[in-house]
Amino acid sequence: MGGRAGSWVAGALAILLVGLLVAIGLVIASRDDVDEALTDDQQAAAAAARAEALAFLTVDHEDMDRLVDAVLAGATGEFAEQYAAQRETLTREAVRTEATSVPEVVALGVGDQDEDSATVLVAANSTVTNTGTGGEGQVRYYRLRLELVREDDRWLTDNLQFVR
């Protein structure tokens, strides 16, 4: 290859490279300017709320201690205190009625949110069995509202209510 031909090829490659870089730039610029920090915060609060809602709705009369612990692991403040105080009652009732509940989250969204707090709505269904259902699973439909607070970079639930 002659020097002249070589520089032609190099020149053509350089022009191609610039064209590709411009194309990449245009594609990215045409995209939404997503607020990454906001998106990350929402995902983190939402994931914590999902875990807590599922833990809260799960019942297994043979394994209540572990299930209550799972709820408390994601709880704080008044909700944690109240739930901890109900450990015996919850366990006794679950055992007495041979209750099980297997929940799933159908939809979940985040309401008001700032640096340290978030409100999350959860639509969940749970398949419930107990001495009253005669061994058959019954599906229950729930609407939950969770209030979460950020403590040491973890989102914890300090209020959980059924929405009427």
């Binding site: 995902q43 709320a49 979940l108």
Partner: peptide, 9 residues
């Protein structure tokens, strides 16, 4: 769900 990895705000 808002915890889906594909969501954006």
């Amino acid at each position: 769900s808002a915890d889906d990895p594909a969501v954006s705000v």
